[in-house]
Design a protein around this nucleic acid. Sequence first.
DNA 1: ACTTTTAGAGAAAACGTTTTCTGAAAGAAG
DNA 2: CTTCTTTCAGAAAACGTTTTCTCTAAAAGT
Lengths: 335, 335
Amino acid sequence: MVNIKVVAKEAGVSISTVSRVVNGNTSVREDLRNKVLEVVEKTGYRSNFLARGLKGLPTRTIGLVIPDIENPFFPAMVRGVQDVANRNGYAIFLCNTDGDMKLEEGQYNLLLEKKVDGILLVSSSQDIPFLEIASSIPIVLLDRYTQSSNFSYVVVDHTYGINIAIKHLRNIGRLRIAFIGSKPITSGARERFQAFLVNHQRDPNLKSRILFGKYTQESGAEMAEKLLNSGEKFDSIVCGNDLIAYGVIDVLQNHGIKIPEDVSVVGYDDIPSSAYRSPKLTTIHQPIYELGQIGAHMMIDAIEKGLNETKHIKLEPYLIVRETSVPRGVKSANN
Amino acid sequence: MVNIKVVAKEAGVSISTVSRVVNGNTSVREDLRNKVLEVVEKTGYRSNFLARGLKGLPTRTIGLVIPDIENPFFPAMVRGVQDVANRNGYAIFLCNTDGDMKLEEGQYNLLLEKKVDGILLVSSSQDIPFLEIASSIPIVLLDRYTQSSNFSYVVVDHTYGINIAIKHLRNIGRLRIAFIGSKPITSGARERFQAFLVNHQRDPNLKSRILFGKYTQESGAEMAEKLLNSGEKFDSIVCGNDLIAYGVIDVLQNHGIKIPEDVSVVGYDDIPSSAYRSPKLTTIHQPIYELGQIGAHMMIDAIEKGLNETKHIKLEPYLIVRETSVPRGVKSANN
DNA sequence: ACTTTTAGAGAAAACGTTTTCTGAAAGAAG
DNA sequence: CTTCTTTCAGAAAACGTTTTCTCTAAAAGT
């Protein structure tokens, strides 16, 4: 491997001079600079990142930890951060936690050990003990924020998202709305649930129309069965995410319930398959790719410009009406 | 940050001794070893990977380059490699190429610069010029192999995959089979196409029932239109991947063609949504997660045991019959 | 013309390890 | 009791950089 020493020898200068030329921060005599540049070009020399890192300089490496890349919600986000990271010469370490805080801490420590310049974290809990001891590198929370937030984050405004979902259902005359979501352990789940609650404050026997499970199709199916068995009346369901909606729709249809004629279903996320699935899912679209992009930008700014005021960004989701909410013949009022 | 020096001082020994204890390759007197271990435990000392890397030791870091994480084919593969990598203490760099060989080379060089111990590559071409100049680290090709293969690879046996697809269609009486695939630029696409060809050698006007596009839903739709417009007769379609099948099904249905009554469609890949989509797609399941796992295992073996004989592994896909191939009432012969 | 400032190049220290080399003490062999 | 091994700890070199420090020579000021 060609290192700074051989470049120096080849160019007939000292290694200090080579370093100065390739980093370009101090002035070097014109002829020497050109000679060095020429040798660098010829040999394809690139300074060794391990050595630079050892000197305390940035490694141009960012850690990204998410629950599960196989969850269709995350690929777009990952791609968003990779695209801007790559454009800026950063490489990204990707880690999965499966929603387990023990693993999450493990990945966090692994990344610190790898001397990443910063960590983008989709945490699986609202309080993250291992982040409380101040870290030496910037941390940006993605998609979910913490209780005691001294960290920058970029999230989606789920209160707004649930509001427009409910508004849409009311517009088409659905007033007995059920909610099937995830246990409110993450900020996102909590916010969605609370937004639903606020919209139904005066509702007496609301409790039995609210069900909590996990963000999976299986869990969605299970909870739909439970809702059905409860005997509670409902004409529409707001789901915590699209996967849950898939399960719900399957179960409802298996019970001979017509969607959207008998009950309207609206999902949340707008993962890619929701546009293909039949019936095509009405859902709240989250700007996932943009979320990744913006997070990566914030991170790179924090790394390079040393910005350490925390920044909080909330993105707006929007409603996509497909086939699972509006029965034929019903006119959706302008929302 | 706690480094080897403070551990040495704390334990009252030299840094050499500390190094020897934490690496455990040479013998150290019992009492000193215990003292050091105790201090290491207390301080949470972990040796700096940059310094180790600089000494030429492995960085316990692997590069994984794929075309696009947003392509639903890849998350399972990525997860497969991450799971075994993680279990063995490796971190993985994930890179996207979008099928562009220029970008692929760029990512490859970026990874070399990051001093990864090895690279897992899903290449977008059958010959990879930048790999011809011998690399100092192990390379394992995933999912696709090259012409002049001096590299280890793990792939899926697509000849077998297409054979069982065709056999299935013939079993249910479909004899005029069309093929809509990707231009045979990767080994996978080429193999699928050739397997189809071999099965139809005596067929006179076969050409017009073979169409090449890209591995996307849009392309699938486009080619289905083309096939329809050609006036060529067909009773079934084998698609190069599931995404193409989605596009094909949409177009066929829009033309009032019933699936599977009028024409049978079989996909290839079995991406997650194929089990949900309606109609549920009959397809060839590829063991994608296993492919990632096995690739990672080969890589780690190559890194740690220095195995440098090239190893070639072919995994067997299998048929999953869902709703797009067998018309009601037709009995599928035992295959 | 002589001193003072400035430009800019090289030497050397430092980053945190691993590992070879050196050396001392203890044990074995004569 | 002396000499030769052996065991094992510490010193020091090395990995490839960046950057501070030192020094020379030229430019600038008087």
